[in-house]
Design a protein around this nucleic acid. Structure first.
Lengths: 224, 224
DNA sequence: ATGCGCGCTTGATTGCGGTCAAGGCAACCG
DNA sequence: CGGTTGCCTTGACCGCAATCAAGCGCGCAT
């Protein structure tokens, strides 16, 4: 973990703390290596730590009684997850977490980090800002789920990716079945959605490569 | 507002601050009176304050392009809303807010409260805990929306109300059309959902009065 | 008491998305 | 080079919830 130390400390959850605090925290950091498909924790497990993804990708998901899987969030390198267990009481993980690829994580012990938080308003502020962002994202998702149909959801997802990847040459970051699960759709419906968007001229698709041809149309479709 | 001062200060967002901080904050608190149906702010408005409901009820909602209204949250006496604008930049309200009944609110200016927050970890902690709770609620709602059908959503809502009201003699807190909008359903579907639950023996309905007869069945229906 | 109006319920129809089953396509392997 | 395997797409069908359209019941005012 020595090599990662510096980049880890640049993470927003750790950037604002003092050197002394950093040294105090160090014994409570642990790295984990997971192979694709391996479970990290299950929904309902007692939580002693939260995590930062060094590399790879984790999927956070829930499972319905019939076994259908809904991906709540994909977490990639540099992002953190399960910070919410810092403040829930009793601290339990509210989702399942599983490695979507071979991954490397840093676990941060809950109690130790809370001690840091107590002494650093800037870090508190970072945590709160992060939570705020998450809340906004949830509202958008709830709105999409209850107000819009399947095609707008796909369009919204593509715009998100566009913002994320910069280039109009998108490469889908996961298998389409996974993306479908993230959007709360059947894989077939995602397929048809992409087809519809193609036919409207907004995008063109070949395999996992999506070319955004008309962002304006795409943006309109979002709220249709 | 003098009469409310004490009860206001017992609100979790204000409970942990010192007397000096309280005096410093006082000039930045403002009471508002709204009649039922009156708008407080619209989605996208620039935000200078967040709010605590003294009495009455506010509805927070979004509107689709076709005019359909989705109630994101109902806020009643003692609860606060729009705290998330404390940390978003630029600070804009992410929903519309409208009085569902005649209501009395206390507005707390954003900048002033941020100054308090900087000096009170306990208050930070309260804010973060609150946000955590909200995030969990959103996950539950997202799960319900994407994994379950209409009847389980109704069942879930009734269980929420049961926990809230204590007694198995529920009084629905709003017109059924409003509740339907909150659940993301057509009013007709809510009606049929209640009917289904009646026929299964889980509840019985007369007007706005719902008697919970079999909580276990209701709970099963939730995740069906 | 009678008539009106509004909110709720009920029934019939429609459309969207899920499910099931079959086919295409590409990568990997004998 | 043909075969197998896994992923994706396509098409046919089905079911749930939205929509449309009456009917019903209750409160209210004349």
């Amino acid at each position: 973990m020595e090599r990662n130390t510096q980049s880890l400390r640049e993470h927003y959850l750790l950037a604002a703390i003092s050197d002394a605090q950093w040294r105090a925290l160090a014994p409570y950091l642990h790295t984990h290596h997971l192979r694709a498909g391996q479970n990290l924790f299950s929904q309902g497990d007692r939580a002693e730590a939260f995590y930062i993804v060094a590399c790879g990708a984790m999927k956070l998901f829930r499972v319905s009684a019939q076994g259908a899987e809904k991906i709540m969030r994909m977490v990639r390198g540099g992002q953190s997850f399960a910070e919410s267990v810092l403040f829930s009481d009793p601290p339990r993980y509210p989702v399942h977490a599983q490695a979507a690829e071979d991954s490397e994580l840093v676990a941060i012990e809950r109690e130790a980090y809370l001690r840091i938080l107590r002494e650093s308003f800037e870090t508190c502020r970072a945590v709160m800002a992060q939570m705020t962002e998450r809340i906004q994202a949830h509202w958008n998702e709830i709105e999409a789920l209850s107000l819009h149909g399947a095609v707008p959801r796909v369009a919204r997802y593509l715009l998100e990716q566009l913002a994320l990847q910069g280039s109009p040459q998108l490469r889908l970051p996961a298998a389409k079945a996974q993306i479908a699960a993230q959007l709360g759709l059947a894989p077939e419906t995602l397929s048809r959605g992409l087809r519809t968007l193609s036919e409207s001229g907004a995008i063109s698709v070949r395999g996992a490569l999506v070319q955004v041809r008309d962002e304006a149309t795409l943006r309109k479709t979002t709220q249709a």
